[in-house]
Deep mutational scan, measured.
Amino acid sequence: TETRTFDSEEEAKKAQKEAEKQGRTVTITRRDDRWEVRFD
C-alpha cells in the first residue's frame, strides 16, 4: 500500500486514473485542505 497526498482534487483524480489503468485499487480521502490517495 502506498499513500500520497495532493493539494488539489484534480491532482488526486489524475493519480487515481493512472493507478486504475495499472489495475490498482485507489481510495481518495479528504484530509482538511489536502487530498490523500491510497494505492492498494
Rank of each mutant, 00 (worst) to 15 (best):
1 T>P: 12
1 T>E: 11
1 T>G: 12
1 T>L: 12
1 T>N: 11
1 T>V: 14
1 T>Y: 15
2 E>H: 12
2 E>V: 14
2 E>F: 13
3 T>A: 09
3 T>D: 04
4 R>L: 15
4 R>H: 10
4 R>T: 08
5 T>I: 15
5 T>N: 06
5 T>M: 15
5 T>D: 05
5 T>C: 07
6 F>V: 03
6 F>Y: 14
6 F>H: 01
6 F>E: 00
6 F>K: 00
6 F>A: 01
6 F>Q: 00
7 D>S: 10
7 D>G: 09
7 D>I: 07
8 S>V: 04
8 S>G: 03
8 S>Y: 03
8 S>D: 06
8 S>P: 00
8 S>H: 05
8 S>N: 10
9 E>H: 06
9 E>K: 03
9 E>P: 04
9 E>F: 15
10 E>K: 07
11 E>W: 02
11 E>A: 09
11 E>L: 06
11 E>T: 03
12 A>H: 00
12 A>Y: 02
12 A>T: 02
12 A>V: 04
12 A>M: 04
13 K>Y: 15
13 K>R: 13
14 K>D: 11
15 A>Q: 05
15 A>R: 03
15 A>F: 15
15 A>M: 10
15 A>I: 09
15 A>V: 11
16 Q>M: 15
16 Q>R: 08
16 Q>C: 12
17 K>I: 14
17 K>W: 14
17 K>E: 14
17 K>P: 01
18 E>S: 06
18 E>F: 06
18 E>W: 08
19 A>N: 03
19 A>T: 02
20 E>H: 08
20 E>C: 10
20 E>R: 07
21 K>V: 09
21 K>A: 15
21 K>R: 13
21 K>S: 14
22 Q>D: 11
22 Q>L: 14
22 Q>T: 10
23 G>F: 04
23 G>D: 03
23 G>E: 02
23 G>H: 05
23 G>I: 01
23 G>N: 04
23 G>A: 03
24 R>Q: 10
24 R>H: 12
24 R>L: 14
24 R>K: 12
24 R>I: 14
25 T>H: 14
25 T>M: 09
25 T>N: 09
25 T>Y: 06
26 V>I: 05
26 V>G: 08
27 T>N: 05
28 I>D: 00
28 I>S: 01
29 T>V: 14
29 T>L: 08
31 R>D: 04
31 R>P: 02
31 R>H: 09
31 R>V: 15
31 R>A: 06
32 D>K: 12
32 D>W: 04
32 D>N: 15
33 D>W: 02
33 D>G: 15
33 D>I: 03
33 D>Q: 07
33 D>E: 09
33 D>F: 03
33 D>S: 06
34 R>V: 13
34 R>G: 14
34 R>T: 09
34 R>D: 05
35 W>M: 01
35 W>I: 02
36 E>Q: 04
36 E>A: 02
36 E>K: 02
36 E>L: 07
36 E>T: 03
36 E>V: 11
37 V>E: 01
37 V>P: 01
37 V>T: 02
37 V>L: 10
37 V>N: 01
37 V>Y: 01
38 R>N: 09
39 F>D: 07
39 F>V: 11
39 F>A: 06
39 F>Q: 05
39 F>S: 07
40 D>S: 13
40 D>A: 12
